[in-house]
Amino acid sequence: MKRTMIAGALCALALGTAHAAPPADWSKVAAKDITLFHPGVSPMEWITKGTEHGGARALRKGDTCADCHSDETMKMGQLIASGQKIEPSPIAGKVGFIPVKVQAAHDGDTLYVRFSWKQPAAAGGAKMDEANPVKIAFMLDAGKVEGADQSGCWASCHADSRTMPGAADTKKKYVKNADLAGGVFYDLLQWRSGEKKGFDGYVADTRVMEGGKALVSAEGKLDGDTWSVVFARKFAGGEGDVALAAGQTYNFGFAIHDDHATGRFHHVSLGYKLGIDAKGDIQATKQ
């Protein structure tokens, strides 16, 4: 009996040390303030065409979306959500922007990313996703997706994707010249409030929401009027998981589907850099 108890205790200890644990005190982890905004109908084709989007020339010169727009995301979101610009189907009462705090840390084996924001006032639109009042997702790229270094996750947004005007409901997000085996894809992690679970997928020639091996956990809660969601993701994974390593930087973008929204009716970030013990807009340092 004693031997059994000792063996069980040693087993539990081994499992406990292997289990990923986020920082005990997130207040000690540096935070980056990023404002998400409602993008309306602004797919990559509209952005790069140049006849309507004045920043197309700047992109061709190598500037990033954040270089031009990081200080005006609130204004852009308000104009778009109101229907004054590039949103033909505005939702009454929809907020134009959501300020979010982003924090990241790692333990040498697992990346932890925390998002926190205040719940916006409800709009007057229909519940597009009845099951989930809130969804949050982020995408990573290792420098293989064309345009991701300038636009974050925008390179997966196309004019023929579902919820875009005239697009087929079956057409999901995708990446130009996608090659899953060759690393040309976005790593995608998502948490859904209603289902209370995380999803580990990718965006290549289409969006796939499951199958990844890197996600350890995704947990969220609403404390008063403030949401906090923490993802734990192993550095190593499988097909559709970007391999992470200390000293490296990755293209990063994220989005919140608030108020039961789906498709383009979300709030999105511009493109940023996530550094793991490396320079970046968001820096994950070892805890």
Rank of each mutant, 00 (worst) to 15 (best):
S42Q: 11
E219T: 14
A18E: 14
Q150F: 06
D149E: 09
G253Y: 06
K61Y: 06
V102R: 05
P22S: 13
F231P: 00
Q103P: 02
H158C: 05
V134G: 04
H106L: 10
R192D: 04
G224T: 06
G212H: 07
G16V: 13
G77P: 04
A137V: 02
T35R: 13
T249V: 14
A159R: 08
L36V: 13
P22M: 11
L188I: 02
L140C: 10
R233Y: 05
R162D: 09
G198Y: 04
W46G: 00
A31M: 06
G224M: 08
V268A: 12
S116F: 08
A167G: 07
E130D: 10
I98P: 10
K32I: 05
A167F: 04
S217M: 11
T226A: 09
S89N: 14
Q283F: 01
T163L: 08
E130M: 12
L36H: 11
Q103E: 00
D169P: 06
D179Y: 03
P43T: 03
P22W: 09
H19P: 00
L59W: 05
I98Y: 08
G183F: 01
D200H: 01
F254G: 00
E146C: 00
T285A: 14
I276A: 03
S193N: 08
D187T: 02
G194S: 06
Q119G: 01
L188E: 09
W227G: 00
T226M: 09
Q78T: 14
E72V: 11
I47V: 13
V230D: 04
K101H: 13
F235G: 04
V184W: 09
D71T: 14
P133H: 07
A214D: 12
A278R: 09
D141E: 00
P165F: 02
V102K: 05
G54P: 00
A155N: 03
A218P: 03
D160M: 05
N177I: 01
T51K: 15
T226R: 13
E72P: 00
G238N: 12
V100N: 09
A58N: 11
H38F: 10
D205S: 13
K234D: 11
V230M: 01
A121K: 14
A105V: 08
E87R: 13
T262W: 13
H257D: 14
A167D: 09
C153E: 13
A261S: 15
E146F: 01
Q119I: 12
W227N: 03
S70R: 14
T64F: 01
D67G: 01
G108L: 04
P23S: 06
V242Y: 04
V102F: 12
A92W: 07
A255N: 07
F231R: 08
G240L: 08
L13Y: 06
F138A: 02
H19R: 14
D107N: 15
A246F: 01
H38A: 13
K49S: 15
D277A: 02
R114W: 04
R114C: 07
K32F: 11
S151W: 09
K176T: 09
G194K: 04
A236Q: 14
E210T: 12
T226K: 13
A66V: 12
K49F: 06
H267W: 14
T285R: 15
L180M: 05
A126H: 08
K49D: 15
F138G: 05
V29E: 07
D205T: 08
F254D: 04
S151I: 02
K196P: 04
